[in-house]
């Protein structure tokens, strides 16, 4: 079943979505092809499942409400990733404002969130990796997530983040070095 979804081209999905009669088929195909990828992209950005669930739902609703205006100047998945990234960034900014009065540092907040999240069962090393990610500037963090977890080529990242490939490579390099330095300085990384 998933093979069929991945074989269907984005153009075919878009054509189905543009017609009222075939919208439902297009909807199901797009969800089957992209919902998991987009969810995990959002989840890695916002960390907690409940937050990721809110963000991904808002993102997908926006996608389907605006898909008829999509002019195909970029590829479909680039457009989807851009919407998901922007939605997650907006959410994180709001969350940061709400937490501005909290006494906890961001990294300890992430640890608390992960410990409280029933949908996290990672080991200490993964916990520390998440902690290290909170130390990165927002842009470097986005670059690291797209490259490290989504394994996205730099050219595609460049379209989503609207940054040159050279700048992205430099950002990823700096992010990796900062994370490695952080992990090396904390004890007992598994």
């Amino acid at each position: 079943m998933s093979q069929n979804h991945s074989q269907i081209s984005d153009e075919e999905i878009l054509n189905l979505l543009k017609e009222e009669a075939s919208f439902d088929s297009g909807f199901s195909l797009l969800m089957a092809k992209y919902q998991e990828r987009l969810y995990w992209h959002v989840r890695r950005m916002v960390v907690e499942h409940e937050d990721a669930n809110d963000v991904i739902q808002n993102c997908l609703v926006k996608v389907f409400r605006n898909v008829r205006q999509f002019e195909q100047k970029s590829q479909l998945y680039t457009w989807l990733y851009r919407i998901a990234t922007n939605e997650a960034i907006t959410f994180l900014k709001k969350k940061k404002r709400r937490a501005a009065h909290a006494l906890d540092a961001p990294e300890s907040m992430v640890i608390n969130q992960l410990e409280a999240d029933p949908y996290f069962d990672g080991n200490r090393a993964q916990m520390l990796l998440q902690q290290a990610l909170t130390k990165l500037p927002d842009r470097q963090r986005q670059v690291f997530l797209l490259r490290y977890f989504d394994e996205m080529p730099y050219q595609e990242m460049s379209e989503i983040l609207e940054t040159s490939v050279g700048a992205l490579k430099a950002s990823f390099h700096h992010a990796v070095k900062k994370i490695e330095h952080y992990l090396s300085n904390v004890q007992s990384v598994d």
Partner: peptide, 20 residues
């Protein structure tokens, strides 16, 4: 290694319904 991030059972099937 596994990242440790998981989702509730049948989450993606329900997600499609909720978005619809």
């Amino acid at each position: 290694q596994e990242s440790g991030l998981t989702v509730p059972p049948n989450y993606f099937r329900n997600l499609e319904k909720e978005v619809a």
